[in-house]
């Protein structure tokens, strides 16, 4: 207690201006601006702001300006401004469009099954059963693992010779010959998407379950009194009630999966022959080659695309909501 009292006395003197501090004491409930209050807030925020500005914002901004410069670690003698040359090089590169296509497949192929399975599990988890808590804890635990390590786990399971997935498929009589999953571009894409679905379902389950629990029971009682069937209840009560959460969760996940190179990095490293690169893994490999200018240009293109997507997505989901009500 003594420590805090002394601080009270100290602070105004450190400021050198007593009156505002006194004013704050007489009207403690009103959040009027006073120097003392402002300094207190600033002091509490300062460490967080300092760290984030120095180690996140500064590199991010200085990275953005590299996109407009000739900046290659292999030769730093000429780092002049080159305008949009890096962007032009990007758009002229046919690999860029292949990578964009893969990114679209990766995002859509991951998000749709994640959403459907996650939603189904959430619906079925609403009902109480004996081991529900344990069940939730068990399906939650892929989350404790890093995406990179998940990539490694699935790389081993999809191994063409000794992989357990080929073994299970052939035991089930679905395949005669082992599939070289990660050596063939098409099947490699399927394999990385399967791994990502495995990882991401839980997120949807958690978010949707939380939203479902906020729907009042009366709505369901009313619906069953009106003789509404299962499907009608789902589409006319459940889905509209949690539409905001659903659309926000999907948006966050799209952005996140777009930026999620970890699984691919651990599983294929973008191979075979660049056929499983998404934009972010490609960007990492450009960074590793030392061409920071080109990598930053790619990054800015990603940010722009995600921004445009978010705006359109938010407009689209908002409109639907307005039309319904």
């Amino acid at each position: 207690m003594t420590r805090s009292t002394s601080e009270r006395v100290e602070r105004p003197s450190r400021l050198g201006s007593a009156p505002p501090a006194n004013m704050a004491d007489t009207r403690p409930r009103k959040p009027a601006f006073t120097t003392r209050r402002g300094l207190g807030i600033a002091a509490f925020m300062a460490p967080a702001v300092l760290f984030v500005v120095v180690f996140i914002y500064y590199p991010m901004i200085s990275g953005s300006q590299m996109a407009f410069r000739n900046w290659n670690l292999t030769d730093l003698t000429d780092t002049s401004w080159v305008g949009f040359k890096n962007f032009q090089a990007m758009f002229a590169d046919p690999v860029f469009y292949t990578v964009l296509g893969h990114t679209a497949v990766w995002v859509a192929g991951s998000i749709v099954p994640q959403f459907v399975i996650g939603f189904a599990i959430a619906l079925w988890l609403r009902r109480h059963f004996r081991f529900r808590g344990l069940y939730q804890a068990l399906i939650f635990f892929p989350w404790a693992i890093s995406g990179f390590l998940i990539g490694i786990l699935f790389r081993w399971m999809f191994n063409s010779e000794f992989g357990v997935i080929n073994d299970l498929l052939s035991k089930a009589g679905l395949i005669d010959q082992p599939i070289p999953w990660l050596a063939d571009p098409k099947t490699a894409m399927i394999a990385i998407t399967v791994a990502n679905v495995w990882y991401g379902v839980t997120f949807f389950t958690i978010m949707i379950l939380a939203a479902l629990q906020s729907i009042p029971d009366e709505l369901y009682e009313a619906a069953s009194l009106d003789g509404a069937g299962k499907a009608r209840t789902l589409f006319q009560i459940t889905v509209p009630s949690i539409r905001a959460t659903l659309s926000l969760t999907v948006l966050l996940r799209v952005i996140w999966i777009f930026n999620f190179p970890d699984i691919i990095f651990g599983m294929t490293g973008g191979g075979p022959s660049n056929e499983t690169h998404i934009v972010t893994t490609w960007m990492i490999s450009i960074t590793q080659q030392g061409d920071y200018g080109k990598a930053s240009a790619t990054g800015l293109i990603v940010v722009t695309m995600l921004l445009v997507f978010s705006v359109f997505y938010l407009m689209a989901t908002r409109e639907k909501k307005g039309a319904k009500s």
């Binding site: 209050r37 200085s62 590299m66 972010t280 960074t287 990598a295 990054g299």
Partner: peptide
């Protein structure tokens, strides 16, 4: 617990760090 002018901006600044691919910062960092 407090209301102040730059609060929304600070929260937005926190969100932005989660949205932007951090790899853009790797080289400069």
């Amino acid at each position: 617990r407090f209301e102040f002018r730059s609060k929304t901006a600070l929260l937005m600044a926190a969100l932005v760090t989660q949205m932007i691919p951090s790899f853009i910062a790797l080289g400069p960092l």
